[in-house]
Amino acid sequence: MLQPNAVDPHAMLHSLADMLRRTLDQRIGIVIDATPDCPPVLADPGQLESALLNIAINARDAMPEGGTLHFRAEACGALPREVLNELGEAGEHGSFVAISVADSGTGMTEEVKERAFEPFFTTKEAGRGTGLGLSTVYGFVKQSKGAIAIATQPGAGTTVTLYLPQLFDAAPPAAPDDDDGEQALPAGLRVMLVEDDAEVRKVVHTFLATLGCEVVAAENAEQALVQMESDTGAFDVLLSDIALGPGMRGTRLAAEAQQRFPRLAILLMSGFSSELLDADREAPPSWELLRKPYSRAELARALARVLAARP
């Protein structure tokens, strides 16, 4: 369920760039081309940030030797023909803002470009990605009544452009709402992160690090329990995926960990509604369930809630 609101592209891109500069390879330069008077768009702020992060991660992987990541936002005059065809009547009569992410990386062949939005399609080696990133972005853009386009050539980089509805409203645009959640988090919060997907684990680790957390990561429940028992400092939060591959599930891990460490706050996450519904039936009131994909701000707010609710 999306929660569309007014989003200031200028503020969002600068906030996202600040985070990426602290986490990406230093050989990747980041350029922002968005004026403060760029019109606001109507979109879910958290999901828009997640979509742009997904695109940025793909761009990073396409530049293994470094390069330039260029973010741009501007009001559209005439929409490209392919976008007009995709939007139909809404494209003829609506006003849109184009938010693009361009890289100077390896680019795509025409065959890869045609399949880029297919679920589970990936050109990365095993263990380097699920192939769900761009398909999730595509779904978000379509649900937001917008369109998405890719311009690319092998060896000449790739530009992914989101065309989102321009908002005509007297209400002030909302910048990414990181502040409330971040202010509620104590400095040096110790988080045990458990996630079996290496790429997702890396992204969540980045989110937590930029929120000022001290993070220890594990790829399964058994590793996490050993780490928690052997670590000299107490953990404040267990942040675990529900499905962890073979072995113990996240819900069982959470129950076991909280039995051993009664003051431990529990935050479980999943990209599947059925898993969240099942977990909800067996979760005590102090646990929190977080649906993937989520933004850094959504994670911060969820962390603040489980800390307030812990035993």
Rank of each mutant, 00 (worst) to 15 (best):
I242C: 06
F168P: 00
R201Q: 15
H205W: 13
S100L: 04
F71D: 00
V215F: 06
Y163T: 02
E256R: 12
L299I: 08
N58W: 09
M1K: 06
P39R: 02
S50Y: 01
F235G: 04
E282R: 00
F121D: 06
Y138R: 07
D18G: 09
G127N: 10
A56M: 11
F71W: 11
A283W: 09
L253G: 02
I99K: 01
T136G: 14
L299E: 08
A90S: 15
G46W: 09
L277V: 14
V200W: 01
L42G: 06
L53N: 06
A126H: 12
E111A: 15
F71K: 02
E49W: 02
P172N: 12
Y163V: 04
G250W: 00
D236C: 03
A98R: 10
E275D: 15
G133M: 13
L87I: 05
E125M: 11
M19L: 13
V112F: 06
E282T: 11
F168A: 15
M192D: 07
P39F: 02
A51I: 03
M228Q: 07
D103L: 09
L16C: 04
P176I: 03
A56V: 07
H14F: 10
G29D: 13
E86T: 11
D280F: 11
F261I: 01
L303W: 11
S104D: 12
M228V: 06
D280H: 14
R128H: 13
A254C: 10
P285D: 14
T136H: 07
Q166R: 12
Q223F: 02
P9V: 08
P311R: 14
L268C: 13
M19K: 08
D8V: 00
L211P: 00
A116D: 00
D197K: 06
M248W: 02
G129P: 05
H93N: 13
I57E: 11
A98D: 08
L289P: 02
A302L: 08
Y138S: 05
T130N: 09
V194L: 11
A187N: 14
A187Y: 13
I99P: 01
P154G: 02
T251I: 12
E195I: 02
A209G: 13
L52G: 04
R305L: 13
T130W: 03
G212L: 10
D25F: 04
L52A: 07
P176M: 08
R301E: 14
L253P: 01
T159I: 08
E49P: 00
A254P: 02
T136C: 08
P119K: 01
P80G: 05
Y163C: 03
A78D: 15
A218I: 02
C76V: 14
P154A: 11
N220R: 11
L307K: 05
E89V: 07
E229I: 05
R115A: 12
T251L: 05
D196R: 15
R128A: 10
V141I: 14
V31I: 15
S286V: 03
G139V: 04
P119N: 04
I99S: 05
L289G: 10
D177K: 12
D278P: 00
G247D: 09
R249G: 10
